[in-house]
Design a protein around this nucleic acid. Structure first.
Lengths: 212, 212
DNA sequence: CTACTTTTGTGAATCTTTTCACAAGCAACT
DNA sequence: AGTTGCTTGTGAAAAGATTCACAAAAGTAG
């Protein structure tokens, strides 16, 4: 039951949660750390250690009750509530995200969409109207958005990051290929497709190089 | 100049490379580990340690020649060549990726696109015709695709992963929210938007909880 | 050529994360 | 109630990653 939680632990928690959901989990069904490990590509000891940071939810000799562990994890991850999300950038990536089904299911509710293309401003996506980024501060405040997804080109990402933060956003999911500078109490998660691809080509190249 | 390279090092290398590219880098311009650190949100010692895994490219008292380090990094990351990519899934995410500008620039060339929607099969995107996934093995082999991007729903991802691998693909970028089972010499990079968002809501929630 | 400044490359120290290993707890059965 | 079988929770050990700190190079100036 410690204080500082490793980033890698958090990612695994997400994964355990997904496994639990796949597992269905009617009534008093239980699951062992061993089973979770297998599904999560890790070890049983790791699963138990990860969970032990937050308390002890299992029963010895029996395992974890699926239903209970699931709701505990949702609470730990902070998704036992709805998060209001501002989507900044209504281009290709923005629209793909908006349509992403798991999104709403998991408690993320896109309450505002911004773009600076006059062609797009005023159109509606589902219930939401695309706004000019000129209105960003006002709309973010009015809608009470707490998260921002930045799906905009690199050159404008930094400016928009500052603006959403000053309008009250508490965390940013960033698709632009730059390191955003924001106050350090505002967490930023970067999604960089190029970086992922490079990790992949590195891994492939490296694997080949072992034989040399 | 060691053997096993930490995953985190690889990601930082990607980042250094991006910084070097931003830096322009005409002629004999140089950059110090300190400068790279600043841009990469890390420390100078970390930069030097990361690079030292692969040799020593700097000049003491002077730093690294931008142009040279850039091409070294491109070589290390395995992107001093073109990678032929098969894009599996022509839905929202697939099309966003296809249009992603950095993609071609960075040496990733989409040589085949697959979908199983009869509406989409036969259409062309740029130079590439969308094929039925029935033809996957043949087309992957014919085009010599080495990487696959899986942008398909979770239920079919595992099957398609196996099929691209058996057709000769050497690495997979996976957007489906499941852990793929593939031979262990085939690297898989997962991109999970939900996981990123959950890491974000955890961080925000946690930050608040410190005050309690 | 010598002194001075700068910045790398790297062992050693520190800090973090993972793995090990086992006592303690729980359920089921006799 | 006692025994057996299983699985958690957790200190302690091991492995891994980062930071420190400094000698060794390289350029520059006098």
């Amino acid at each position: 039951m410690s204080r500082r939680i490793p980033e890698s632990t958090v990612r695994r928690l997400s994964h355990y949660l997904r496994s639990l959901e796949d597992l269905g989990g009617e009534g008093g069904q239980t699951v062992s750390s061993e089973e979770l490990a297998e599904r999560g590509q890790t070890t049983a000891a790791q699963v138990r250690k990860d969970l032990s940071h937050f308390g002890s939810f299992g029963k010895r000799g029996l395992g974890y009750r699926v239903e209970e562990l699931r709701s505990r994890l949702r609470h730990i991850l902070g998704i036992d509530r709805t998060w209001r999300v501002a989507l900044v950038g209504a281009g290709r990536i923005g629209s793909a995200l908006f349509a992403y089904p798991d999104f709403n299911v998991r408690g993320y509710d896109v309450v505002a969409v911004f773009d600076n293309d006059p062609e797009k401003i005023g159109r509606t996506w589902g219930e939401v109207t695309i706004r000019s980024s000129d209105e960003l501060e006002r709309v973010v405040r009015d809608t009470g958005a707490e998260l921002a997804i930045l799906a905009v080109p690199a050159p404008v990402a930094q400016e928009l990051a500052q603006r959403v933060v000053s309008a009250g956003v508490k965390g940013i999911l960033n698709f632009a290929p730059i390191r955003l500078r924001v106050p350090k109490d505002v967490p930023v998660e970067d999604v960089s497709l190029v970086m992922e691809l490079e990790a992949l080509s590195f891994a492939i190249t490296q694997a080949g190089a072992v034989d040399e």
